[in-house]
Nucleic acid binder design. Structure first.
Length: 221
DNA sequence: GACCAGGCACATC
DNA sequence: GATGTGCATGGT
């Protein structure tokens, strides 16, 4: 039997997940700005904790780039508390807001008109915006055809032998983009489905299964 | 109490 | 370039 090409395997994976779970309708967020803000706040953090922050901002009417821009960084940090890493995230959001205001007049519509490949480079140049955050903003807030790679993507693809472990972000991103048509709904749904099974099934543990020291007692235990 | 959650920057070698 | 570490809350 001929080995299935990587492209075929990706297509099959998507079809199976989509048939099983249906469209996920990502990203949760009512406006493009809300999506962009959420992308920064959810860095290495459970979405539930981020949702709390966003609901709080909505409640006080500050879920707006111009309003947030007027809030001092220290006070912003307090509003971000439940999302964790709140001091760092306040700084990162400020950096994004400054760029967003200076370059696009705090307009997501204007931002969406920019050449997205150049925009991606600019976002990556901001302190606090790494590849996953940049791609999340581009794909889900601005609807640009770039693939989002996250911890779930790494784990799932490496466990199923589709990617090396470890594997660089850009390498995995290209693995998808070189083999799938650059369609925004496809990229959005595929990533959302990977997160879905990552949360439900592809858990981090057991991390050391098969190691002869797997059940070795800790020193002092 | 340990582990985990939709990263990123920075120091060090 | 690879590796280790700080950042922090809240759920299981």
């Amino acid at each position: 039997m001929a080995a299935m090409t990587l492209k075929k395997r990706l297509q099959e994976m998507y079809r199976l997940l989509h048939d099983t779970f249906g469209p996920q309708g990502w990203w949760p967020g009512e406006t493009p700005f809300e999506v962009a803000l959420g992308a920064i706040l959810t860095q290495n953090t459970n979405w539930r904790n981020v949702a709390r922050v966003i609901e709080g901002l909505k409640a006080e009417g500050s879920l707006d780039p111009l309003v947030l821009g007027e809030i001092p960084e220290a006070e912003l940090a307090q509003r971000f508390r439940s999302a964790g890493y709140y001091n760092i995230k306040a700084r990162r959001v400020k950096n994004f807001l400054d760029f967003f205001a200076g370059r696009f007049g705090s307009s997501m519509e204007k931002m969406a008109e920019a050449d997205w490949q150049n925009l991606r480079s600019d976002l990556l140049g901001l302190h606090g915006i790494g590849p996953e955050t940049a791609d999340s903003i581009l794909l889900y807030a601005l609807h640009k055809p770039t693939f989002v790679v996250d911890a779930y993507t790494f784990r799932i693809l490496s466990r199923h032998g589709l990617a090396a472990d470890p594997c660089a972000y850009e390498e995995l991103r290209q693995l998808f983009m070189d083999r799938l048509p650059p369609e925004v709904p496809l990229y959005q749904e595929f990533h959302a489905l990977l997160v879905r099974i990552g949360k439900e099934f592809c858990r981090p543990q057991p991390r050391c299964a098969g190691c002869p020291l797997e059940n070795w007692p800790e020193a002092g235990a």
